[in-house]
Amino acid sequence: MTTGQNTVGDVFSAGAEEFHRWSPTLWDPVGEATAGVAALAAGESVLDACCGAGASALPAARAVGPAGRVDAVDLADGLLAIGERRAREEGLANIRFQRHEVTSWPVPGDGYDVVQCALGVFFFPDMDRDSAALTRMLRPGGRFVVTVWEKGALGGWQSALREAVLTERDLPDRPQREQLARIDTADTLAAWLTDLGGSEPRVVRRRFDAPLTPKTGWVLAIGSGTRGMLAGLSPAAVERVRAEFSARLTAGAVTDLDVRVLVGTARFSG
Rank of each mutant, 00 (worst) to 15 (best):
C51Q: 04
C51K: 03
V37T: 08
F268T: 00
A231P: 09
A247C: 08
G9Q: 05
Q176T: 14
L230T: 03
T34M: 10
V114H: 09
G15R: 06
T226D: 14
L75I: 04
C117A: 14
S131I: 13
G228Y: 12
A60H: 02
G141K: 10
A186L: 06
L171E: 02
A181F: 13
R162I: 13
Q98V: 15
R69H: 07
A33R: 02
Q116C: 12
C117T: 11
L249P: 00
A236H: 15
G36K: 08
S13V: 02
D77P: 09
A14H: 11
V107G: 00
E239T: 13
P211D: 01
H20N: 15
G78S: 05
E44Y: 10
R169T: 05
V145G: 07
R136H: 07
A210H: 05
L233A: 02
E244P: 09
A57E: 01
A118P: 13
P66S: 14
Q116D: 11
G65R: 01
A231N: 10
F144N: 06
F19E: 08
T255S: 10
G252F: 03
G217W: 00
L58W: 05
L40V: 06
V261Q: 00
A251W: 11
V259C: 01
G155R: 13
G141P: 10
A60M: 03
D173L: 14
G232N: 03
V146T: 12
A93G: 12
V263G: 01
R205H: 11
R86P: 04
G43K: 09
A14F: 11
A221H: 00
R242H: 07
R143F: 13
A186H: 05
S246W: 06
F122Q: 04
V165F: 07
G4S: 12
V115G: 01
G197I: 13
P140I: 01
G197S: 15
L80Q: 01
A93V: 12
V102I: 08
S199C: 13
R88L: 11
A118M: 14
A266K: 02
M229N: 00
K151I: 10
